[in-house]
Amino acid sequence: MQHGRWNSNLIHSLFDPHFEEKILAIPINSVQEKDTRFWSFDPKGKYSVRNGYRVEIGCYDTPSHSSEVHSSKWWKYMWNLSIPPKLRIFWWRVMHDIIPTAANLRVNHVPTEDFCSLCKGWNESTFHALFWCPVVKICWKKTKFWPLLKHVRHLGTLEVILWMKQELDRRDFELFVSRTWAVWNQRLKIVHGSSSGFDVNSLDGSAVMIREFQMASLSLLSPSTKITSLAPHKWMAPPRGQLRMDLDVAYHVDSNLFAIGGAVREGWLLHLEKKGLNLHQLFMQS
C-alpha cells in the first residue's frame, strides 16, 4: 500500500492478472491504524511451532476458510450434491485433509518418503497429489476445470475447493468432485503397481457414473416413474416378412462427439459419427 492506495505496480509484479484484478478491487479503509503482526494460520493470530510445521509440509489451511468449511451452510450444500455416497465420503476426507498422502502420513508418524510417489520431486501434500503433480496435471489440462486450477497454485486445498465452488455451477462442481475422485483412485493404482499410467477413458467414465447415478436417483424419487430393467434381453429374430433394426448410441463427454450404430437382420450395418458426418455401410451375413 502506498499513500493510502494500492501499489498497483508491485501487485502486478507479484500476482497473476486474475488475482491482481481482485486485489485492486478491495476497498481500503480510510481510518489509518497501526499495523500489528498476525499469524494467519491461527485463529488468534499467534504463531506456534506445531502449526508452523503443518504449514511447512502443506497440511494447514487458513482459518478463514476453515471456519467457512465447518459452517452448516457449506455442509448442507456438500451433502446435497447429487453424487454417489462414496464420492461424498471421499470429498469429506479431502476437506478434512485426511487422505493418505505422504505429508499426512508423516504428520501421523508413519515412516514414508518426503517426495511425491509419482513425480519424485515435490512434497506430496493433498493439493499436490490431486491437482499439481506434473503427472496428474495431464489429467486436468484437457478439461474445462484447468483454466481455473492453473490460477490457484499458491493456495491451500480448502481454498482451492471453495474457489471452485464459487466459480462453478452446481452441475460442474459435481463433475469436478467426480474427476478429483477418479484422479485419486488412478493415482493409488499406479502407486500400488496395479496400473502403469493414467487411463484417460477411465477418468472420463467418472462423468458417466455421475449421470447414471442422477438418472437412477430421479427414478427412485418419482413414484410415477416406471423403472425399466437395464438387464440385457435375449435377441430374437423378427417374424417372417418383417425387419428388425437394433440401435446403439455412444457419447464422449470431453470431445462432445456421438456415434450411432444400427444393425438390420439379414441386411446392412450403419455407423454414423458426428465428426465429419461420415456414413459407412458395411455388408455382413447374419
Rank of each mutant, 00 (worst) to 15 (best):
D172M: 12
E212R: 07
T157R: 06
G241V: 14
L220F: 09
P147K: 02
I138E: 13
Q186S: 12
V183F: 04
M164Q: 12
M236V: 06
E212K: 07
T62W: 10
K73S: 15
R211W: 01
S117K: 05
G156R: 14
F198I: 04
E68Q: 15
G262V: 11
V253I: 01
E33M: 03
P63Y: 11
H151E: 15
S30T: 12
D35Q: 05
K142T: 06
W92E: 13
L270E: 03
S206F: 00
H109L: 13
S255Q: 04
D16H: 10
K46Y: 01
N104F: 04
H3T: 08
N256Q: 07
H271P: 00
N29A: 11
M215I: 05
G276R: 02
S178K: 04
R106D: 08
W91L: 13
F145E: 02
T180I: 02
L14F: 12
F145Q: 03
V110E: 14
E21K: 12
D35R: 02
L87I: 11
T101Y: 01
H18Q: 10
K226I: 05
R88E: 13
K165I: 08
I57F: 14
V264S: 05
K22R: 15
W132S: 11
V135K: 13
E56Y: 09
Y60D: 10
N256Y: 00
A182G: 15
A259Q: 07
S202H: 03
P17Y: 04
S194V: 08
K226T: 05
L148K: 10
N9H: 11
S202K: 04
A207F: 01
R37V: 02
A231V: 04
S71M: 06
A250V: 09
S66A: 15
R187W: 10
W75S: 10
V135E: 15
K150R: 13
W79N: 10
W146C: 01
V200I: 10
A263M: 12
R171G: 03
R211F: 00
S286M: 08
N51C: 07
V249D: 06
S196I: 05
A263Q: 07
K226Y: 01
L105N: 10
W163A: 13
E212N: 07
K275D: 02
V191M: 13
Q242E: 14
K120P: 01
